[in-house]
Design a protein around this nucleic acid. Structure first.
Lengths: 359, 359
DNA sequence: TTTGCTTCTGTGAACGTGCACAGGTGGGCG
DNA sequence: CGCCCACCTGTGCACGTTCACAGAAGCAAA
């Protein structure tokens, strides 16, 4: 990528030197033509230098590079986009209510990671947050309008109308998390099932014998996979009565779920919570029931979010590399744009376990 | 006059009819020219209809509108931006470490609000997160490159180099929070001082006699103003030994600060924490020191973030209309772009007090 | 009839790029 | 010498839009 170096000397007006005072309006930006005149070459040669093509003499190259810094040339994106038939923008689609967008720390980190990768590649990120039905229409129209070259989709639902639009338009796309109804779309994610199995095994390793789970969001692949991993780890010791299902990855759901589970199985001595927020609710429920953690009950969470360090005691949990996910999903879209063929089956990132005080 | 437009018949490819099967590549988007042909008018008239200008006959208008939906015309942004000399993008600059960007709930909400207002006005938002020195250079170069028509700046520091660049380039800009070194820049914010005074008065109204403050981020106007409001409320009763200063609006800083304050003044019975995150740290520190809340000590926070409802007990706090701030700051930039003159002195939004259980 | 004004329409010229193509040089090889 | 090829350069066109301008039609007033 050519980087326009910051201008050194201030430019004088290109037109005739005269007495007419230049009005202090918008000073015009230097174009490739100005650079060509300054360097004594043609537009085409400047273009070749700017885009790093072959077949330019060293003499011309140094003259042009000097001219570029002298006139302070920066390529005009609109003109370039027009002729190249692209927009140099990637849509970042989040299909969540606004409130969850804020409460879920992962989304913010994914956004950050994606933004970093995109801006490194001189792409812009267009945030499209889908909350209401109205938003769905708006985003669908936006996508059809060709305002973006590709899209990143976070937390798509089953039968998501947005996914349909993307599919129909054949826009390069990549998902965070596995979209169940689109087998062929590239995605990045973590091994929810394997990670859940591993941390459950660690929890079992502390000598617990009655280990239960607060399972959440079973309509998502992440929720279902975490439950599956839990089941894997327990093997023949698995007891379905020790699993409490709650709808959302939330503090409130975790607290309510734990109360319900304690009612049913007071002898439980270990809990795998489907997320850190759920685990925070579990901790409070246990405290309200007079159980100590990790003395009476060991608790582990999932995500390694701000909840984890903030909880009391601090949570043992699975670290989710959210920023890395964002970076990876952006790279995937960028790679498609470059016309490279994609790895089948998606990419799974590592999820180290962080062991703290709660188990 | 639409002269015998072949309405109805499907359009064949413009090139020679032959046996060469059209490759299933990118289908070309309809242009203003296609619409003109379809409606039997000229490009200029179509342009006038699209941009809602005067001097178009009703006859032509309906024909063009029908043609637009028929061929599925969407204006090409790159072409429009090229000729209009604009980018239709607004930079959203956050000068914070990545970690704080995530921990501070306000920033996410401000982003959301700004994004809503911007996309309603058909503007794109380009997120520019300044963390390292390297980022500063990158963003400065980006701004100089003319990639945005205006900027929104969140939490600028004193002597911020980014602010300098914006100033020099004379890009339309608006700040969230008052930038101390730029008297003339439009900004939106809240009345930190007044709000701090009000909630401190409420706290005093519960009968507390030894009320202290954990003051944070005194290098920002928000931090300094909150301390000033606290001082205002106490008047002659103000005791400087009851103020503990911490660097950041963070949980950890709040907890450490409260421990330090308790060491110095064990008889404190009320605390105004500079933010909810700080207040959450204060609550934990008090619990660790064996004090009950609100029994022994009343605690109030600031922000009404997710921390507030999540804390135990739930925090009494000042509600910060973060989404509204985002919307307002975006409107300010948009208004400048329209060439309207700006209200001097900035805009302050209302900050209702939310009274919960912690005081 | 001429003149002037308003309303409406079409046309050519930008805007700043990238790319295809033509053309020019010089050297190696038959 | 003639030919081909690799290297280098300049020119014209296209991308899709907006805008300024010219011009036509209709009408009212001189």
């Amino acid at each position: 990528m050519p980087r326009g170096a910051p201008a050194g000397a201030p430019r004088t007006a290109p037109n005739t030197v005269g007495l007419v005072s230049t009005p202090p309006l918008r000073r015009k930006r230097a174009t490739v033509h100005d650079v060509a005149v300054e360097a004594g070459v043609s537009r085409g040669t400047v273009s070749r230098v700017v885009n790093g093509e072959r077949y330019v003499s060293d003499e011309a190259r140094v003259a042009i590079e000097a001219a570029i810094v002298k006139v302070g040339y920066v390529p005009n994106n609109a003109a370039r986009n027009l002729v190249m038939q692209r927009t140099q923008a990637i849509g970042f689609i989040v299909h969540e209510p606004h409130s969850l967008f804020l409460e879920d720390p992962n989304i913010g980190e994914i956004l950050l990671g994606a933004n970093t990768a995109l801006s490194d590649a001189d792409y812009q990120m267009a945030c499209l947050i889908v909350d209401s039905e109205r938003d769905t229409d708006r985003v669908a129209r936006y996508l059809s309008g060709g305002f973006v070259d590709g899209v990143i989709i976070v937390s798509a639902r089953q039968n998501d109308p947005i996914t349909r639009v993307v599919e129909r338009l054949e826009i390069p796309a990549a998902f965070v998390g596995h979209p169940p109804d689109l087998a062929r779309a590239p995605f990045v994610g973590i091994d929810n099932r394997g990670s859940a199995r591993t941390i459950t095994e660690r929890l079992l390793g502390t000598g617990r014998t009655r280990v239960g789970m607060i399972a959440a969001a079973l309509d998502r692949d992440s929720g279902a996979d975490r439950l599956a991993g839990f089941t894997d780890a327990l093997g023949s010791r698995f007891d379905p009565t020790l699993v409490e299902r709650v709808p959302l990855y939330s503090y409130a759901a975790g607290r309510a779920g734990m109360h319900a589970l304690l009612e049913r199985a007071p002898d439980v001595d270990g809990i795998f919570a489907a997320s850190d927020a759920v685990a925070a609710g579990v901790l409070d429920a246990l405290r309200e029931a007079g159980r100590s953690v990790p003395g009476d009950v060991g608790v582990v969470g999932f995500d390694d979010s701000a909840w984890a360090v903030r909880a009391q005691p601090a949570l043992s949990t699975v670290h989710q590399p959210a920023e890395g996910l964002g970076r990876a999903v952006a790279e995937s879209v960028l790679s498609q744009l470059r016309g490279e063929d994609q790895p089948v089956g998606g990419i799974l990132l590592e999820t180290p376990i962080v062991w703290r005080d709660s188990a």
